[in-house]
């Protein structure tokens, strides 16, 4: 099947120089804007040798930034996973009033600038914010502390899982769930045995994207963090501080962690896509073999 490529005459039969020119332009752009910056991150990080690179990574402030980033992602991603599945389930499988409002609200974090998102939390929970006095009286710190960073991260990663699942679940319809109910399955059994297996690849894809964003978020987190070294700095914020202090090796060393993370994310993403496609393909080939 895969070897059976269809030739469409006239559509892709451009003159060779046109092909080379278009391909060349694309390659130059990719090289200039993606490849060179990526290579330069690792180049700058390793410029003064492995020892300094490793020393920059195991430095206490850097370690604390890594830890905070991981903690934030560990809280934000599962929460948004739960919310995203629930919201997509509600939107795709049920009809209710205010559905379009809910869809718009889910998209809000995509359309609002992350800095504004951060500011919202400062306005709400900051010392001079709406709940500031009450929080101060009860000695609860949100802004310039870890809870604020987690809140801001949850906000910016809000739409990823839901956005990924809604079209998928809408396309699948709710026939299978109804069939499960008629056969006597409870709501939970229906979810675990029917709905979840059908959306697993889309869900994983959404989680990977949400995780990448959670670890890399700068704007919203920057507003609420207060940049306290070793306390409220995530990796992106730590990179900025080091860079501003002309500590280039340190800055690029930490940046290389983020870059590596991006590469791992890309690899995972491709793997998920490949896997999902292969599942489909296997089913199709087997169907054609009938």
């Amino acid at each position: 099947m895969a070897n059976n490529k269809i030739r469409r005459p006239g559509i892709t039969d451009e003159a060779p120089w046109v092909k080379w020119l278009l391909t060349g332009i694309a390659l130059v752009f990719i090289g200039l804007f993606l490849l060179i910056p990526l290579v330069s991150v690792f180049f700058e990080a390793l410029r003064k040798g492995w020892e300094l690179y490793l020393a920059a990574l195991v430095e206490p402030d850097a370690l604390s930034a890594v830890k905070l980033t991981l903690v934030t992602a560990l809280i934000a991603v599962p929460l948004n996973l739960t919310f995203g599945v629930a919201a997509a389930w509600a939107i795709a499988k049920f009809e209710f009033k205010g559905k379009s409002v809910l869809i718009t609200l889910i998209d809000l974090p995509f359309s609002v600038s992350p800095v504004v998102a951060g500011l919202i939390y400062v306005l709400l929970f900051g010392a001079h914010g709406w709940f500031g006095e009450w929080l101060g009286a009860h000695d609860i710190k949100i802004i310039f502390a870890v809870p604020g960073i987690v809140l801001a991260t949850i906000f910016v990663t809000f739409p990823f899982v839901a956005r990924e699942l809604i079209p998928l679940m809408e396309a699948q319809g709710s026939d299978e769930e109804q069939a499960a109910l008629v056969l006597g399955a409870s709501g939970l059994q229906t979810f675990w045995r029917v709905t979840l297996p059908n959306i697993k690849w889309g869900l994983l894809y959404g989680v990977i994207l949400a995780n990448a964003r959670a670890m890399g978020e700068f704007g919203a987190v920057s507003v609420v963090s207060g940049h306290i070294r070793g306390m409220t700095n995530t990796i992106p914020l730590h990179v900025e501080i080091l860079y501003n202090e002309y500590n280039f090796v340190g800055a690029f060393a930490c940046a290389s962690i983020l870059a590596l993370l991006a590469l791992v994310t890309l690899a995972l993403k491709s793997w998920v896509e490949w896997k999902a496609e292969r599942d489909d393909e296997a089913a199709r080939i087997a169907a054609n073999a009938e």
């Binding site: 069939a179 499960a180 008629v182």
Partner: peptide
Amino acid sequence: QVGFVFQHYALFRH
């Protein structure tokens, strides 16, 4: 305790 057969089968695809 009814058995229901759907027009588009609604078999569990996985």
